[in-house]
Amino acid sequence: MAVGNVGVVAATRPPLRVRVRELLDRERVLGPLFIAPALILIVLLVAYPFCVALYFSVSNAFIGRPSHFVGLKNFINLWGSDAFRQTFQNAFVFTGTAVACKLVSGISLALLLNQQLWFKRLTRGAVLLPWVIPTALSTLGWWWMFNSLYSVVNWTGIALGLMEPPGPNWLGQKYYAMTAVVVVNVWRGLPFFAITILAGLVSIPRELYEAAEADGAGPVTRFWYITLPLLKPVLAVVVLFSTIFTFSDFNIVYVLTHGGPVNSTHLFATLSRQVGLESGRIGEGAAISLYLFPVLVLVVYAQLKFVRKQTY
């Protein structure tokens, strides 16, 4: 009897293959299924490590030793360290200067690229190049260019009469080292600004300029009253993106100066590596890298709140 029952049920229900096929055609089933791999990846390798970082930051974790809860001691103790206070200041100086330089020269470069040019594609290609080459490797080139004995920057400066021989020891002196790090960051980030702003420029309707010109507006007036206001959303996106990635920069500082001389170019990422891995104080290192988090939150908030609303 029982066996017969199963046979009846199987006969009235469609075969498994068909049922799976029908199930997969439902959006409520297929959607979560398609999201699942990405979600699992993000939970296991982004969200979970973030929680581990939070735990480390409130513990006295040290490589190869059991750890204990110490509350907010790491976050507070950091303020007693000269290296950290210096890093905190560096991060804002570095990000502020670099993003401002990239914005101003990015707008200028985009305006130039928007002109009628003879080698348009080639020029764009050249401009974008620093952005696609591995940063760690191109920074090695800059390291050589800033070498204390053979600096080609100094050689050129002296040859042009801009510097007194032997010229600055770029990576060995406090302010010069910071300048060098900012220069390399601007070099690498400028293409992103220029090309993105150029895309914004191209989308501004020509008629606006023609109408303004007919009304007698000069190039400066047109830039100020047409270009800039219409570029605002693009500029906001670019600045927000760049702020978070400049603030959290690691590669350039690590290769060029290792944070030196005397911590004068350390950023949160490089200091957290030095403290957390090279000295083994993981708890403290995690606390340092978490100082990046408030900036991330601000940028994400601003992106979600203002920018995405405007572009959609």
């Binding site: 390798l45 982004v46 490590p49 920069d249 995690a286």
Partner: peptide
């Protein structure tokens, strides 16, 4: 949001994982 998270924020705990 994940797209905006910089790698330098997570490399320490990720090394443990």
């Amino acid at each position: 949001v994940t797209y905006l998270v910089p790698t330098s924020l997570l490399f320490l705990p990720l090394a443990q994982v």
